[in-house]
Each structure stands twice: as structure tokens, then as C-alpha cells.
Nucleic acid binder design. Structure first.
Lengths: 205, 205
DNA sequence: AATAAATTTGACTCAAGAGTAGAATTTTAT
DNA sequence: ATAAAATTCTACTCTTGAGTCAAATTTATT
């Protein structure tokens, strides 16, 4: 019992290790997002955390693993969003709008970094990241297709619908700055409207 | 006169030099677009052109100059599109749709590569590329603003309107493959509709 | 307090890829 | 045909940043 209640304590060594590992990955992901993977050195990552480069290797196998884990962490967050099922009478468009809003919020307010560099991953790691990305994409395409069935989303190639607005999400990296003048909530509000009207069946003639 | 008429001949040494330099840049840009700047070595670029790495340095100062020139080349093409003025009674939304169609066509059919990596450029080169990008962005924002004045484009922060659909353009890199099943013209057609309905003032209210 | 385990460091190795330079080759001009 | 200019090459140097390792330090356990 005593052992059980202490299992999640911040004093617990395993918990600390995991928290530190996560901090390495989150901090690196943020730098990768802002400057690119190759323009971020292990020394850069370490200094941001107040460590030396060598200490990072106590937590991660190598730089590539950081990139791999960064991607997976983001996709896990997006999967969490997609776990929430639509309400019973909610149209697919409404559900999609909510999903997209959550994605924008993840990126603008929750410190999640959506990275685009998969070519710097090799072998199984790259394959897995691509597969995870494709899976999210397919789930979103499925939502669009169900919107085309329920009548809330207009006709047209669902993949192109998705590539268009997922482009907007991925492009946030290039211009969004958490310290900038544009507030994440305002961005999410605006983007959801633009997403909706972009594919809504209303007005489709 | 004889000298003048020969100035553009493909047999002319200067013309050949320029054509070869251009081939280096276009080929490299395509590889940068597909795999990323850092994952494309100078040996890779040379081999694609049937040269050795050292021969590239006869044409370009260094790798960074290739990246710099790649960006500039693409922005020049986009500037050309924006040089065409709207017809007298054309709404800004119609003009914008035409501009965007041309952009998509540049990327999907004309071998133009839109790159996103500016962090690998340093100093003046990076500053210039960012300035050129910002200028194109500002011109597009101006079109959106005039659409909000002429009533064709709905209200809302024009920058966000632009960031949304320019994200779609920039994200083409991640999924578009010229040898793939999706035809550039079909993509342009679809994207133009999605752009239009995304920001059209019709139905606003 | 002593010992063990965990964590961090300083100083290092290594190599991939950018870039160089002079020689070789090719092309053009005389 | 010869010389000059242009282009390409081979063989190399250099450097930056990834990664390593044993020692030093810190933390936890006995």
C-alpha cells in the first residue's frame, strides 16, 4: 500500500526520469519546430535545459530518437482529440470543426509541436511516424466522408478537402509565435470558420 | 547586329553557363523540396545532373547559395503571377482565385519548388528571402482586404484568411507527387473552390 | 557516516559532408 | 594544328556536430 501510493510521487526516481526525458523531448520539439531539426544542435537542446550535451544521452539514445519521440508525442495528443466521439445528433462537419479547434489549441496553447521533417528519420522510425501520420489523416478523411453522407459536407475528393485544411495546421509553424500578437483562441475561432465554410454543403450549388 | 542576334544563342557560352546554373538550382530545389535541404548532399545534387560535386562549385558559390537562389526563383515566379492585374470589373475574390490557381499550377505542373526552410540561410540571404516572402504575403493580404471592401470576401482578420490557404499551398510539398494519381489541374480546381468558399462573403451572416 | 546508485560532466573521438586546388580534359578561338 | 579558355575531375582538407567514456558529483539507501 505504501509502495502503491508512492508510485507516482515526484520523488520517485522513475517518475523523475520520465519527467526529465519528456522535458528533453518537449523542449527539443519546440526548437525543431522553430528552427528545424538540423539547425538545432544537441548543445542547443542541452543548454535550454541547463544541462550539458552529454547528459542528454542518459535520457535518450540519440538525436534521431528525440525527433521520433517528438512526432509520436504530438500524434498521441491528436489521437486523444480523435478519441472523443461525436455527440449523437452532431453532424460530421460540426464534429470536424471541434476536432480542428482542438488541434489548433494543442499547437498554439498547449506547447505541442507539430513537426514536418520526417526525412531526417530513417528505417523503422520513419516508417512508424509516417504510418501514424497517415492514420490520423485517414481518420480525418473518414470524418469528411461521413459528412458527405450526412449532407453537412460538400462533395469532392475528401482527401483534397483534408490536405487543404491540414496544410493550414502544418503551416502554423512558419508564422505562429506564442509571444506574438495573435492569440491562439482567436486563431482557432477564425480557422474553424474558414474550415467550415470551405467545405460546408450549405451554399453548394 | 550580328553580335546582338547571337546574344541568346544556346551556343553562346554565357547562355550555356546561365542555363547550367539554372539547372543546378532547379534540380537541387526539387530535391530539397522532397527530402529537405540537409538530407540532400552536394554529391546527390551533382549525381542527378551527371556531374561531380566539385563541378557544381564552378556554377555556385556554395550550398547555401543554391538554397537562396531556389527560394528567389520561386518567388520570382509567384511575383510574375501577381503582376497580372485584375480585369476591370473583376472582384478581388475572383482575382485571388485566379492567382491561387496559378500558384498551384506552378508547383504541380511547372517544376517550381516552394521551400519552407529559411532557417538554414544565414544573414543577408535569410533576410532577403524572408522579405521576399513577406512581400508576397502582403500583396495577397492586400487582395483580401480589397475583397473585403468590394464585398466579395467576408470580414475577419485578412492575415488569418491568408495564412490558412497559403498553408494549403505550402503543404503541397508533403503529399503532392508529380507521378502520383492526383493531377495538378484537378488539385487546382478543387483547391480554388475550397479557397473561395472558405472566405467568400456569400452566405456570410 | 559509508556505500551504492543515479546523474552529470569534461575531454575526447569520429565521420559525413561542405568546400578547395591544381591537374586533366574538353571546347573554342586563332 | 596550336593555344587559350572553359569546364570537369581527383584527391584532398577542414569543421561542425553527433556521440562516447570514465571520472566527478549528487542523491538515496543502509
Amino acid at each position: 500500500m505504501t509502495k502503491t501510493t508512492l508510485i507516482s510521487s515526484p520523488f520517485d526516481r522513475d517518475v523523475q526520469f520520465a519527467a526529465k526525458k519528456r522535458a528533453v523531448i518537449v523542449s527539443a520539439a519546440s526548437a525543431f519546430r522553430r528552427r528545424g531539426y538540423h539547425n538545432t544542435s544537441m548543445v542547443d537542446i542541452a543548454e535550454t535545459l541547463g544541462l550539458t550535451k552529454a547528459a542528454l544521452y542518459y535520457y535518450v539514445k540519440n538525436k534521431e530518437e528525440i525527433l521520433y519521440e517528438s512526432h509520436l508525442m504530438t500524434y498521441a495528443s491528436m489521437d486523444d482529440v480523435l478519441q472523443l466521439k461525436p455527440a449523437t445528433n452532431q453532424t460530421a462537419l460540426d464534429y470536424l470543426a471541434g476536432v480542428f479547434r482542438s488541434f489548433v489549441n494543442l499547437l498554439t496553447q498547449s506547447g505541442v509541436s507539430l513537426l514536418t521533417d520526417v526525412d531526417s528519420l530513417k528505417g523503422d522510425w520513419q516508417a512508424e511516424v509516417l504510418a501514424r501520420r497517415a492514420r490520423i489523416e485517414r481518420r480525418i478523411i473518414r470524418i469528411v466522408k461521413s459528412g458527405q453522407i450526412d449532407g453537412s459536407i460538400r462533395s469532392g475528393d475528401p482527401r483534397l478537402h483534408v490536405f487543404f485544411f491540414m496544410g493550414a495546421l502544418n503551416w502554423l509553424n512558419a508564422w505562429f509565435d506564442a509571444d506574438g500578437r495573435l492569440d491562439g483562441q482567436d486563431i482557432a475561432d477564425h480557422f474553424v470558420v474558414q474550415l467550415r465554410s470551405g467545405i460546408s454543403a450549405l451554399g453548394e450549388g
